[in-house]
Design a protein around this nucleic acid. Sequence first.
DNA 1: TTACTTTATGCGGTTTAGCGCATAATGATG
DNA 2: CATCATTATGCGCTAAACCGCATAAAGTAA
Lengths: 83, 83
Amino acid sequence: MSAFARSPKQLGVLIQRHRKQRGLSQTELAGLAGLRQEMLSKLESGQPGTRLSSIYAVLSALDLEMTIQPRTKSSSEDIADLF
Amino acid sequence: MSAFARSPKQLGVLIQRHRKQRGLSQTELAGLAGLRQEMLSKLESGQPGTRLSSIYAVLSALDLEMTIQPRTKSSSEDIADLF
DNA sequence: TTACTTTATGCGGTTTAGCGCATAATGATG
DNA sequence: CATCATTATGCGCTAAACCGCATAAAGTAA
């Protein structure tokens, strides 16, 4: 159920995935998060400079949450997440 | 083992906790992450504008990683994390 | 207390996110 | 093909992160 976001790129892909699962366009999600469509486009493509507040705005709009933990080698979850 | 970071504040506290567990000063960790001590101070205090790249720099310097998942009600993990 | 380390705060200057708007790809559908 | 929705890119602008340095504040130990 949880997916690693080890880079801005991966985080962007995850957000995009969850957005599409909800059938939202970038414009719609941006509206919910108080951002703009252009921003979401950059965020999903892995813009490293995106501000933490923007990340959280999108996460809460998608009902997602973030956890922090010690880096793992490569769990089964990890491998499964590649597909 | 994993801890929720539902806000910039919580994320800052978590980073601070892991930094101290490693016996690092803000200056030392900042050096490892390619940032400055002043930045870490603000990051740990929950500055919402901190950039994603800075977050990742600190996480990797502390050998931490981030995961994203659907928001949970309040799991046992969640409660345990409060202490 | 003093002396030292660590953390927080401030200022000027540079860089860049984000806004707002426009528009150019890209994609899907008929 | 044409049409429409969606996503990506660009420009000018403002606000703020971040730098670099300094220093104040807070903590620790003698």
